[in-house]
Amino acid sequence: MSQTPSPDTTPTPAPASHLDAPESVGAWLVRLLKGIAIGIGFILPGLSGGVLAVIFKIYDPMIKFLANLRQRFWANVRYFIPVGIGGVIGVVLFSIVVAAAFGRYEAAFVTLFIGFVIGTFPSLWRQAGKQGRSVRDYVILGVAAAAIFAIMLVGGQSDLTVQPNLGVWLASGALIGLGVIVPGMSPSNF
């Protein structure tokens, strides 16, 4: 004789993912605001939209969606519409603010952006050292720092203009896309 649970004792299954939760206006607006912040991160050198996406818990669902576009495609599109709208708003509005600020306070804003970059070093140092460091790691750090410094010196003394063409635009788009997906890489630096 098999036992079946009574209707009032059957547990209600929890939503399987962020896509199964009921949509509310508040949740939509929160994702819009997160998108605006991520868009601002795309504009500002030293900030990473990818890092902000991680902080706002948008990164994992975005990567899962991009890794398998066919799985729950329309549910994912509905989920990311406010993030995309917010991203565009953040990029457009903040680019106006940045352009005006650079026109009036260029030295202050360059210093601010350098501060953003330097401010990420402690967290990167801790993250990179979670499994310990060896002498080899310090040698690689020194060689990389010297190479970057040399590139900056050479780049500052030469004119690095690139003639726009289809290949340049595609390569630029690929680098910006990489900067969007990889946390810590700032698309505006590219």
Results as ranks from 00 to 15, higher is better:
Phe121Pro: 05
Ser95Glu: 04
Ala146Pro: 03
Leu33Glu: 04
Gly86Lys: 05
Phe94Cys: 10
Val83Trp: 00
Gln157Ile: 00
Trp28Gly: 05
Thr9Cys: 04
Pro15Phe: 09
Pro61Met: 02
Phe94Trp: 08
Arg126His: 08
Val25Pro: 00
Leu112Gly: 05
Leu124Ile: 14
Ile176Pro: 00
Gly179Pro: 02
Leu52Pro: 05
Ser188Thr: 02
Ala144Ser: 14
Pro45Leu: 07
Ile89His: 11
Leu141Trp: 10
Ala171Ser: 07
Val51Tyr: 08
Ala171Arg: 04
Pro187Cys: 04
Ile85Ser: 02
Gly26Asp: 08
Leu19Lys: 12
Leu32Trp: 10
Leu33Asn: 08
Phe42Ala: 13
Val25Arg: 05
Leu19Asp: 15
Pro13Arg: 08
Gly142Met: 14
Val168Leu: 10
Thr120Arg: 04
Phe109Gln: 05
Lys57Thr: 09
Val135Arg: 12
Arg133Glu: 09
Leu178Trp: 02
Val97Arg: 10
Leu29Cys: 13
Phe73Glu: 09
Ile58Ala: 05
Ile181Tyr: 00
Val139Gln: 09
Leu66Gln: 07
Gly46Val: 08
Val168Lys: 06
Pro45Cys: 11
Ile89Lys: 11
Met152Val: 04
Val88Leu: 14
Gln163Arg: 11
Pro22Phe: 12
Pro183Ser: 11
Ile118Met: 01
Trp125Asp: 10
Gly142Ser: 12
Ala67Tyr: 12
Leu141Thr: 12
Glu23Ile: 10
Val139Met: 10
Phe42Asn: 05
Trp74Cys: 07
